[in-house]
C-alpha cells in the first residue's frame, strides 16, 4: 500500500525528461519523505528536467501522469532547474 505521494513520485520519475525531483518541499511519511511532492487540495510537484524540449510540453505530460494517479486535483508544477548532459 503506497501513499499517493509515492505514486506521484513514481509517475513523475518515470518520465524520460525528468532528472529528479527537487527538494523545495516534501511529503512526510512514516519512515521516509518524498521530496518534491506535496498532496493536498492541490498536488504540487517540483522537478529538475533533463531536456531540450519546450518546458510547457513536458509539464503538460507530467500533469497528465500525475492526474492519472492522484485524481482530478489541480497539479502545480515547479521547474526548479535543468540538467544538461554536457554540463
Amino acid at each position: 500500500m503506497t501513499d499517493v505521494s509515492e505514486d506521484v513520485e513514481a509517475a513523475v520519475l518515470a518520465h524520460p525528461d525528468v532528472a529528479r525531483l527537487d527538494g523545495a518541499f516534501a511529503s512526510y511519511l512514516p519512515g521516509r519523505r518524498v521530496l518534491g511532492v506535496r498532496v493536498g487540495a492541490r498536488v504540487e510537484v517540483a522537478v529538475v528536467l533533463r531536456t531540450g524540449r519546450p518546458v510547457r510540453e513536458v509539464v503538460a505530460e507530467l500533469r497528465a501522469r500525475v492526474t492519472r494517479v492522484a485524481g482530478a486535483a489541480p497539479v502545480d508544477v515547479v521547474v526548479a532547474d535543468l540538467e544538461w548532459e554536457s554540463w
Binding site: 528536467l49 509539464v59 489541480p74 502545480d76 508544477v77 521547474v79 526548479a80 532547474d81 535543468l82
Partner: peptide, 13 residues
Amino acid sequence: QGRTTIASSVVQK
C-alpha cells in the same frame, strides 16, 4: 489544471 512555475536558473541555463 494547475500552475506552472519556472525557476530563473532554468532560463539562465
